[in-house]
Design a binder for these strands. Structure first.
Length: 799
RNA sequence: GCGGGUAUGGCGGAAUUGGCAGACGCGUAAGAUUCAGGUUCUUAUGUUCGCAAGGAUGUGCAGGUUCAAGUCCUGUUACCCGCACCA
């Protein structure tokens, strides 16, 4: 059989479509399997060679599951709201919807050309009214549960996109998307209380099978730390509350620092003789972007509050208070007790301002550097804590502070609430109305979806208002509660909204009564295997877990964790080993590869390229190697023989075993290597019988489905190979009757002997003595010990 | 600074978890097929010494444990990815 990918790929794709071969069924008696890949943002650039890597991997898994008899759900959709589309639409004077439609069409064609076994009947699109109706509905549930609130706050403002960014979207002080500077700007924003779920988002990670680095990234991002809150008396007669993870060092607190934005600056205004200086410092700090602020991290600056001081509750000593931008208003209480002897930052600050450094944990030299070790030190200069280890001192002091009523145990998180508003057009409208009498009111659920109005201009406004704000007809409405005139919220939701629950919609995509029926959700959820990019560990993954937990608490779904298993793929780099980018000119277009070599080669290559979890550079030569393998596979069609040797049969069964196991372990590269070995074996043997070749075709089917179908059909296979039962191996045919055992003398390899499986030490030794090299090595010496590992090796020790 | 990861031929990568390092593929060389190029097939291919038989050496670097180390331990270097004044 001459292999021509152009002749067969379209043919089988059409056949799969016509037979709805990959549609999930309603047969709920079968075990289900929900395999999920992150749905793409349909950008104008089209599919990138990075996309097919995870898609192929889970395509292989889901195809295997289907062949194993599962009712498989492997869906695909479009995460289509978002800034790039809107920007492109503005630039080219098109409607974002048109841009989205075009891009989706292109993406879908590309995905189809790769032969993925997606259930296209369940295709979803976040910009579809019938979809975002339910995104809005879920938002309303959050609002009604008190998890959404509006807050005037300093937000991250991208100067180029003219939009507010979530903390997660700011990378190194720059906009994650466009790379422009991000500055702070005070704006009133909708917030979601993800912090209320911080503990569960950490603790429930123990119940799921995520690769470790994803769990770690989430834990670090949430940043839970245990410590205490302590109230310090001040000379104003009020209390200044701090959070510390080192309450054990309280005796060493020689000054305090509050953030420049701390409300006490205003509260204490009358007592502050240098109030102007403090305000000047605060304004200078506000002008700095987060990035600059971090850049200056090395040089500690600050201003002492003249006129107010505090009392160290343990030593009774009066200590000064400073404002400094190394203390963040957004973390803890926005104020700290400073212990220069045992904190690097406090130490640096103390050196600049000439403040006392008092050692309270022995073990270092606090004149040279802060001693921050918590494992080895012993408490000194610390009254009731003297002699204790740090760990015990922490506990003791918290008990003591609690008794005195001036402190208590406290947990803090780095995680901030989720900034949920965007001042852009191409997003889900937030379904809330502001009434002067009733405040913020949800619109009636019957009135959902609240559709995006047609506007003249999508341009963002310089004052930071959403383009929707100019649509007075749309904005002016009536209060759902009292009927008085009211105004709609004009901000839209962030792109993360639609993707926070999309996997649930796949379960029941046409439902108009609910986001999905309880029955469908109970059957399909949780997702059995979810693969996606590492970059989403702290964004999408966290957000969607949060929404899932809320829906779980409200009784809409039955699982507290949406994804049972999460894996992540490595990036595909350019041929030069650098990240693919237009500017480097190293971008490979998947369409070109499919055109020249075929989808099967493309799929095979992307799996063969290396360890699935690691990055790997593209190599056109290696692509050719994969094509060669398929050519040689197709050639088997002309090499049918009546029977095969026991050796070849063994090779077949070993390959079935290896491919079966390797797919589960995501070791797609070695699974393919095993099939290459089998192919070499068959060619060396001069061919194989029909049954062997049919089995081989089934093994290859998840990887290179088009050619596998073609081979299966030409060998007389019934129905589609994609729906045939997955091959089984005979355990007894995977073990060799005889085996090569390595022989070493004094740990040095000398050669191998062939013996029966499970041959004992004496037998192997007797064979070993027939090896010339072994004899030469032990000649004239006395063998005093033999180390024997059955079926592996024999090491002869002599002197 | 903190956290995580990686390091194996000319290249991408294997190695049953301590037991023959380099599977599989690419590339390269020689030969066969072909008018020729391409394709295909055969053989060789870590480095090094040697005409050869054969020897030595070899998994970033330096030690260690062990009969035996790519794999375990200690130290160290380089690169990649997160987070980053989080009290």
């Amino acid at each position: 059989m001459k292999y021509s990918h152009k002749d067969i790929e379209k043919k089988w794709q059409d056949r799969w479509d016509a037979e709805k071969a990959f549609a999930a069924t309603n047969d709920r008696s079968k075990p289900k399997y929900f395999a999920l890949v992150e749905f793409p943002y349909p950008s104008g650039a089209g599919l990138h060679v990075g996309h097919p890597r995870p898609y192929t991997a889970l395509d292989i898994v889901s195809r295997k599951r289907r062949m194993e008899g599962y009712n498989v759900l492997y869906p695909m959709g479009w995460d289509a709201f978002g800034l790039p589309t809107e920007n492109y639409a503005i630039k080219n004077k098109m409607h974002p919807r048109t841009v989205t439609e075009n891009n989706v069409k292109r993406f879908k064609g590309q995905l189809k050309s790769l032969g993925f076994a997606f259930d296209w009947d369940r295709e979803i699109n976040t910009t579809d009214e019938r979809y975002y109706k339910w995104t809005q509905w879920i938002f309303l549930q959050l609002f009604k549960k008190g998890l959404a609130y509006k807050k005037e706050m300093n937000v991250n403002w991208c100067t180029s996109c003219k939009v507010v960014l979530a903390n997660e979207e700011v990378v190194g002080g720059k906009c994650e998307r466009c790379g422009s500077d991000v500055v702070r700007k005070a704006k009133s924003q909708w917030m979601l209380k993800i912090t209320e779920y911080a503990d569960r988002l950490i603790d429930d990670l123990d119940t799921v099978d995520y690769i470790e680095r994803v769990k770690l990234a989430e834990k670090n991002w949430i940043g839970r730390s245990y410590g205490a809150e302590v109230n310090f008396d001040t000379s104003r007669g009020d209390k200044l509350k701090v959070f510390t993870t080192r309450p054990d060092t309280l005796y060493g607190a020689t000054y305090m620092v509050i953030a420049p934005e701390h409300p006490y600056v205003e509260k204490w205004k009358d007592s502050l003789s240098n109030y102007e200086d403090i305000i000047a410092y605060r304004e200078a700090a506000a002008k700095k972007s987060d990035f600059e602020r971090t850049e200056m991290a090395k040089d500690k600056t600050g201003v002492r509050l003249e006129g107010v001081s505090a009392i160290n509750p343990m030593t009774g000593k009066e200590i000064p208070i400073f404002v400094s931008d190394y203390v963040l208003i957004t973390y803890g209480t926005g104020a700290i007790m400073a212990v220069p002897a045992h904190d690097d930052r406090d130490w640096e600050f103390a050196k600049v301002f000439g403040l006392p450094i008092i050692e309270v944990v022995a073990g270092g030299n606090v004149e040279e550097a802060a001693f921050t070790d918590v494992e080895t030190g012993v408490m000194v200069n610390s009254g009731i804590l003297n002699g204790l280890e740090v760990k015990d001192a922490k506990q003791r002091i918290i008990e003591h502070l609690t008794e005195l009523g001036i402190g208590e145990k406290k947990v803090n998180y780095k995680l901030r609430d989720w900034v949920f508003s965007r001042q852009r057009y191409w997003g889900e409208p937030i379904p809330l109305v502001y009434c002067e009498h009733c405040g913020w009111q949800p619109i009636d659920e019957k009135d959902l979806p609240l559709t995006l109005p047609e506007v003249e201009s999508y341009e963002p406004t310089d004052n930071g208002e959403s383009p929707l704000a100019t649509m007075t007809d749309w904005v002016n409405t009536t209060c759902p509660k009292c009927g008085a005139s009211a105004k709609r919220e004009t901000d839209t939701m962030p792109q993360w909204a639609g993707s926070s629950w999309y996997f649930m919609r796949y379960c029941d995509p046409y439902n108009d009564e609910a986001f999905a029926s309880k029955e469908a959700l109970d059957y399909w959820l949780p997702v059995d295997w979810y693969n996606g990019g590492m970059e989403h560990a702290t964004l999408h993954l966290l957000y969607s877990r949060f929404w899932s937990k809320v829906l779980y608490d409200l009784g809409f779904i039955s699982c507290p964790e949406p994804y049972l298993k999460r894996t992540s793929h490595g990036m595909i780099l350019g041929e030069d080993g650098e990240k693919m980018s237009k500017s480097r000119g190293n971008v490979v277009n998947p369409d070109d590869v499919v055109e020249e070599f075929g989808a099967d080669t493309m799929r095979l290559y992307e799996m063969f390229i290396g360890d699935f979890e690691k990055s790997a550079p593209w190599s056109t030569n290696s692509v050719k190697g994969c094509r060669r393998f398929l050519d040689r596979f197709a050639a088997l069609n002309d090499k049918i023989v009546p029977t095969i040797s026991p050796e070849l049969e063994k090779s077949l069964h070993k390959t079935i075993m290896k491919v079966t196991n390797d797919i589960e372990a995501m070791k797609f590269n070695t699974a393919i290597a095993a099939m290459m070995t089998l192919l070499n074996d068959i060619h060396s043997a001069g061919g194989a019988d029909v049954e062997t070749l049919k089995t081989f075709a089934l093994l290859l089917c998840p990887f290179a489905p088009h050619l596998a179908e073609e081979m299966w059909a030409s060998l007389g296979g019934k129905g589609l190979a994609s729906l045939a039962p997955w091959p089984k191996y005979d355990e007894s045919k995977t073990v060799d009757a005889s085996i090569e055992v390595a022989v070493s003398v004094l740990g040095k390899f000398q050669g191998t002997v062939t013996v029966a499986v499970d041959a004992d030490e004496d037998t192997v030794y007797a064979e070993a003595l027939k090896l010339e090299k072994v004899l030469a090595r032990i000649e004239g010496k006395q063998v005093f010990k033999k180390i024997f590992i059955p079926n592996k090796m024999l090491n002869i020790l002599c002197k």
